[in-house]
Amino acid sequence: MSKLQHLQQLAETRRSIYALSKQLPVAKEEIVNLVEHTLLHTPSAFNSQSTRIIVLFGDDHEKLWQITEDTLRGIVNDDEKFKPTQQKIEGFKAGAGSILFFEDDSVVKGLQENFALYADKFPDWSHHTSGMHQYVIWTKLAALNIGANLQHYNPVIDDQVAKTWNVDKDWHLIAQMVFGGIEQPAGDKSFEPIEKRLKVHG
């Protein structure tokens, strides 16, 4: 298999896996190393390296989703309406860990000051940078046969997350990735016709 074929296979393997367990096929240290490698080698606008990450295992992982449940329960005061959300969060708690993706606003503001011509673009480019980090880590986890799914409970959990894990005031929460052993694979995926999504000229 060529390098390209292998890369394409990994891209197909990366799916949203929701049925997760706490049994990982690798040691925690290997996941931390994977995240460190991603931070070092994933591109960013103007080489800004603005992405920040917190990895949570064990009790800290479960605490994140308890915070999320408690916060949302305070918003949705109807127990019956809250049941689907609670079931979803229980699925997240069942995983082995969570990866929190942040962008450092102080870096973005510094770029805006130094490159005024592009000032309005840097927040967008910062999100692009975060998205690349998310995809790279997700694909690497898939390569290790670790399931993952990506969530966005920010901004409702931002304050409690910052307080609980002493997050720098300039770090802006972007997304939360839950990971763990695969209890059940992803289902079939539908695709929009490629003709609607791709144009080639020349």
Rank of each mutant, 00 (worst) to 15 (best):
P185V: 03
L100H: 02
S50R: 03
T129Q: 14
L111Y: 10
H61Q: 07
T68S: 14
L40Q: 13
V26W: 06
Q134D: 01
M1N: 04
L24W: 01
P84A: 04
P185N: 12
S44E: 06
T38I: 12
A162M: 10
L34I: 01
H152N: 03
S126M: 13
L10M: 11
L10C: 07
M177G: 03
I67E: 05
H6T: 12
V200W: 12
T42R: 05
A45G: 13
A175F: 02
E36L: 11
A116W: 01
G110T: 10
N33M: 06
I17A: 04
W171P: 00
Q66M: 12
I53F: 02
S44A: 09
T129V: 04
L173A: 01
L173G: 00
Q184E: 13
A94V: 02
I53M: 11
K121Q: 13
L117K: 14
K3T: 10
A11G: 09
M1H: 04
I31E: 06
D159V: 15
E29P: 02
V108F: 00
V76I: 15
L20I: 08
S130D: 12
D104P: 03
S2C: 06
R197E: 13
V156N: 06
G110N: 14
Q134C: 01
T71A: 07
F122Q: 05
Q66C: 08
A143Y: 09
D124A: 08
A186R: 09
I146Y: 06
E195N: 12
N47K: 12
L100T: 05
L144D: 09
T13E: 12
Y118R: 11
